[in-house]
Simulated scan of single mutants.
Amino acid sequence: MHAVIPYVTGALLFGLGVYGVLRRRNAILVLMAVELMLNAVNLILVTADAAVRATLVGVQIESWAYPNGRPAHSGGVFALFVIVLAAAEVGVGLAIVLQYYRMRRAVHVDEVALHHDDEQVSR
């Protein structure tokens, strides 16, 4: 397997996600761009695991490290953890965006006040 194609695809997806995070104003689209970046990382993890397995075909396996005789798919396991992290990020991010929309009726990222202003409280 040539690992160059998935690596380049992952890099392009990650670059598109970074562009989406930096250029989008809508908070939902920013969350979608973050998801695109996390999926690119998943693609890289699984590809790296497959590439390392392909290169280690004749290597002696340590008996204490792998009791069942063969190593686990660590790239897939890490990708599963990234998927769980992405699900939690979407849940918390959407809850924050929905609460902000209920308060302000807009979800533009550049209009979010990041500090507490005393003048707005007194109004």
Rank of each mutant, 00 (worst) to 15 (best):
S63H: 06
N68R: 04
V46T: 15
A72W: 05
N39K: 09
G58I: 04
V84C: 04
Y19G: 09
N68P: 00
E35K: 06
V109G: 09
A88L: 12
T47C: 12
G75W: 01
G69V: 09
E119Y: 10
V90N: 11
V21F: 03
I96R: 04
W64N: 13
M37P: 01
V4Y: 04
L80C: 02
Q120I: 10
N39D: 08
D110A: 14
V109E: 08
Q60F: 14
Y19N: 13
R105V: 04
V46G: 12
R53W: 06
V18Q: 05
A50M: 14
Q60M: 11
N26T: 02
I96S: 03
W64V: 12
R53L: 08
A11Y: 00
Q99R: 10
L80G: 11
V97E: 03
H108Y: 11
I96F: 05
A86T: 10
A3K: 06
V18E: 07
A65V: 08
I44A: 15
D117S: 11
E89S: 11
L29F: 07
N39Q: 10
A72T: 10
H115K: 11
D110K: 12
R23F: 06
V107P: 01
Y19I: 13
D117L: 04
D49Q: 13
V8G: 02
R123W: 08
L85Q: 05
V121L: 12
G20K: 03
I5E: 05
L56M: 13
E62D: 15
R25F: 00
Y19D: 09
R70I: 07
A95K: 01
A88V: 09
E111T: 10
H115C: 07
V97I: 14
A27P: 02
A72M: 09
S122Y: 09
Q99K: 06
T9D: 03
L22E: 05
S122G: 03
I44W: 04
V59W: 13
A27Y: 01
Q120G: 07
Y100A: 04
Y7P: 00
A40M: 09
M1A: 14
R24D: 13
E62Q: 11
V84N: 00
E62V: 09
M1T: 13
Y19E: 14
L43S: 06
G76E: 02
V21R: 09
F14W: 01
L94Y: 10
G93R: 05
Y101S: 10
L13M: 11
Y101T: 06
L38V: 15
N68A: 06
L85M: 13
F14N: 10
R105N: 08
A88C: 13
Y100G: 01
A50P: 06
R104F: 10
E89G: 08
M32P: 01
I83N: 08
V112W: 14
F78H: 01
